[in-house]
Design a protein around this nucleic acid. Structure first.
Lengths: 114, 114
DNA sequence: GTATTGGTTCACCATATGGCGAACTATATA
DNA sequence: TATATAGTTCGCCATATGGTGAACCAATAC
């Protein structure tokens, strides 16, 4: 369980929670302070902060504090990381099913049912 | 924590583990029995079975047993579910940054620094 | 200066996760 | 029939997760 924590691990894990996905959704419209991000959810600030920590740990968001307010913004690159992995898998899958279809095609030219 | 477990929750959670992603990777090349899937990993069968249960619970794989061997195959649709969410987010993000760029463009035609 | 606001930290709790070994079931195989 | 093989189930354990309330700090606002 102490295996090197890859970027994909932490990104997918961060995305596996509805609260965190909702935060990302909010941040799509631009940066926002912690308070405003937390408003829609009925959990305490401490719990919410943990979600932000997970998100920031995965690189999906960044944040900086000035004065007493911390502003969070999305790091869209990291979303792309996950998207890339998924589309790679799909590409492999499609390549394989395409070859399979071609094989079937070439070996049973005129009858399709068995 | 007892919120209705959405499909995205379980899919992303399933993907958040390197062992489980590796299993998916194997299944891209076609169906395989549990034994063969488990070979590359140096964890016990019981632990491996839990991973399979998580994967099957998320709908990413399906499996059926005949005789004493259980054969697993990928359900690529579910991968697409996750991919779709991600690309939606990216679309929103891009729409927003595009509008932002247009706004900046139209409001400071010749000076860029403030 | 005092009060309020926005965050943060701390100790704590219940449950989930990911692993183990041992025992067990059922199907092939010899 | 005896034995090996493929899975499965069980009880156990350490750690992670997601939440709580209470106390605390540092900027603002009054």
């Amino acid at each position: 369980m102490v295996n090197q924590y890859t970027a994909l691990d932490s990104v997918f894990h961060a995305l596996a929670d509805p609260t965190r996905r909702a935060v990302i959704n909010q941040l799509l419209n631009g940066a926002a302070p912690v308070k405003r991000l937390a408003e829609p959810f009925d959990i305490g600030l401490p719990a919410f902060l943990k979600h932000l920590t997970v998100l920031e740990g995965s690189g999906l968001i960044r944040s900086e504090k000035q004065g007493r307010v911390r502003t969070c913004h999305l790091n869209a690159d990291r979303l792309a990381t996950a998207e890339r992995w998924l589309s790679e898998q799909r590409a492999i899958w499609q390549g394989r099913t395409d070859r399979l279809a071609a094989f079937v095609e070439s070996h049973s030219p005129e009858e399709k049912q068995r």
